[in-house]
Write a protein that binds this DNA or RNA. Structure first.
Length: 564
RNA sequence: UGGGGCGUCGCCAAGCGGCAAGGCACCAGGUUUUGAUCCUGGCAUUCAGAGGUUCGAAUCCUCUCACCCCAGCCA
């Protein structure tokens, strides 16, 4: 019985099928404690799809008072790296989860796996096969055609034992032979046609170094890892459903300490992006993005750098169903949760992205000194957060998009500053645009305006109706900043689909760097990863690495919802 | 074509024989010193299709169709 994490009304969510199974297992006494695990292979960075899996696994453990392990499924040293191990640990922690006990590694069970391989050989359930990869493929048969037995299938246990020892001792070259389970070459399930247990890889492993030159295959490792750790419910994605019979075969034929059960649910897909470590790695390797944590990446570290909060990502994941349908979730659904969280929590601030100077011609007439300090709420919905001080000066910056010379523009259509008309400067005065100064090319250089006295926090006199409210920054006291604005990485809603290469659907304008932005003074002191709402624009975050007090750098997290 | 899985609103999804929840998106109003937020209302006589069982079906049966996964010494 989980609840939405939203602060709103507690809507009890219906049990998903796994929760229903767990409740029954608990009720029937089949298990006494729920133990799950999140088992990534350290061959890339985690993405939003893994975030769902993390939430499901850790969430289940939490719901039922159990435990969830973080286990690296590191059975293929050729593709793995310590860098990924470190990044994954950080991502899981950042999301807000704590694994039970120490980090687990499949590689720390290698000795046990080898003992179990010997056991299988002795029982006559496994054999060393010398078929080449191509030959093995032929022998495996086809979906409609049964495979045929390998000529090495009938080797005696003694012979197999000797051969396996030699494999382990490094006496054979890579590819020379493999250890296979003796199951059924005619099975309609291809996974049961004598699957590979061990292959030779003369590769140094990030955890075990050069201790091994043979490595267990996924199928020969996963169920046993779960058994060793006492995992009660081994949850994975749909594509492993065909492996379940094999998962169970090993648990039945080996003297394992427990019998975990595997359940599969649909993996998360989101439109306008890709969620495949292989493809994300290609984006990184081809330098299409700046790295795994580029804010445009759907990786956990990318979302972090983009300014998504862990809570928002978790809320999104919890809004998703744990079911067997595989659908494509609309990016708008993720964005809803990002905005919801940021709207509630991000302090407000002002930033002019595309500045044009505005001079208050009657500044001296109404204001003593060079600057008047006006107060603005940190968060209009949360008075308890207090106010921030803004320096109002003679020269200001407003956004070019907030001014128009076209006096025929309707008030509903353009709620900003129009030549000869009034507009409210947020938290400050109502002003009127009196004059426009242009350069030789006719571009607007400066707008001369006049303020309406006594309008800070007060309504303007009768007859003066500001078209709207615009944001501004003091030209003399504001700070210049760099703002990186992001668009979706792909133009196509399903870049994966079809035969075409997903790289063809990249959005050439997914990043624009604005270097002449102006932020209110206090923002120069923002802490890295500090999130703000730049009013009327959207949510922005001080870059985790590049933002510095002297030279502020913000990343656009997401724009405000724009109505018509 | 063999095996596995799955089809309920544009998207996600509840529903488990008693008369189609909810969220996102969208549309229409209201409030508003953010065209944001917030508030109100609208949005599947129909559940991939066709038969059948039943007083009654999205829920049971039959057939058909669609889509996804599997033929790595990847996970």
């Amino acid at each position: 019985m989980s609840k939405t994490e939203d602060s709103g009304v507690e809507t009890p969510k219906a049990d998903n099928f796994i929760e229903a199974i767990i409740k029954q297992d608990l009720a029937e006494g089949r298990i006494e404690k729920v133990v799950t695990r999140f088992p990534p292979e350290p061959n890339g960075y985690l993405h939003i799809g893994h975030a769902k899996s993390i939430c499901v696994n850790f969430g289940l453990a939490e719901t039922f008072g159990g435990e969830c392990n973080l286990r690296f499924d590191d059975t293929n040293p050729a593709k793995e790296d310590q860098e990924y191990v470190d990044a994954i640990k950080e991502d899981v922690r950042w999301l807000g989860f704590q694994w039970a006990g120490d980090i687990r590694y499949a590689s720390s069970y290698f000795d046990q796996f080898y003992q179990w391989a010997l056991y299988l050989v002795k029982e006559g359930n496994a054999y060393v096969c010398d078929l080449t990869a191509e030959q093995a493929s032929e022998y495996r048969g086809w979906a409609t055609a049964p495979g045929k037995d390998s000529p090495f299938r009938s080797r005696s246990p003694e012979e197999n034992l000797a051969l396996l020892e030699k494999m382990r001792a490094g006496e054979f070259d890579e590819g020379h032979c493999v250890l296979r389970a003796k199951i059924d070459m005619a099975s309609s399930n291809m996974n049961l046609r004598d699957p590979i247990l061990y292959r030779i890889r003369k590769e140094s492993h990030h955890q075990t170094g050069d201790k091994w030159c043979i490595y267990p295959a996924y199928d020969f490792a996963h169920g046993q890892e779960d058994a060793i750790e006492g995992v009660s419910h081994s949850i994975c994605t749909l594509e492993f459903a065909d492996h379940r019979p094999l998962y169970e075969w090993f648990l039945e034929h080996l003297p394992v300490p427990a019998k975990p059960r595997q359940y599969e649910f649909g993996r998360l897909n989101i439109n306008y992006t890709v969620t495949s470590k292989r493809k994300l790695k290609q984006l990184v390797d081809d330098k299409v993005v700046a790295g795994w944590d580029d804010p445009r990446m759907p990786t956990i570290s990318g979302m972090r750098r983009r300014g998504y909060s862990p809570a928002a990502v978790r809320n999104f994941c919890q809004s998703l169903a744990v079911a067997k349908t595989d659908g494509v979730v609309d990016m708008a659904q993720l964005e809803f949760f990002i905005r919801e969280d940021l709207n509630d929590n991000a302090p407000r601030a002002m930033c002019v992205l595309n500045p044009v100077k505005l001079i208050i011609s009657n500044f001296e007439e109404h204001i003593n000194g060079d600057v008047q300090t006006v107060a603005a709420p940190v968060h209009p919905g949360k008075e308890e957060l207090g106010t921030r001080e803004l320096p109002f000066t003679k020269e200001l910056y407003i956004d070019r998009a907030d001014f128009s010379e076209d006096t025929t523009l309707g008030r509903k259509k353009f709620k900003r500053l129009v030549f000869g008309e009034y507009v409210r400067l947020r938290s400050a005065y109502v002003i009127k645009a009196d004059e426009v100064i242009k350069d030789a090319e006719g571009n607007i250089e400066t707008i001369i305006a006049s303020l309406v006295p006594d309008t800070v926090g007060e309504s303007p006199p009768e007859g003066i109706k500001p078209r709207g409210v615009i944001h501004w920054v003091s030209a003399s006291h504001g700070k210049q900043a760099t703002v990186r604005v992001y668009g979706r990485l792909f133009v196509h809603e399903a870049p994966d689909r079809g035969e075409e290469n997903f790289m063809q659907h990249l959005n050439p304008d997914s990043l624009s760097v604005l270097q002449n932005c102006w932020v209110e003074p206090s923002l120069a002191d923002a802490a890295p990863e500090g999130a703000f709402q730049f009013e009327r624009e959207g949510y922005f975050v001080a870059d985790r690495y590049d933002h510095q007090a002297g030279s502020p750098v913000f990343n656009m997290t997401i724009g405000l919802r724009a109505s018509k």
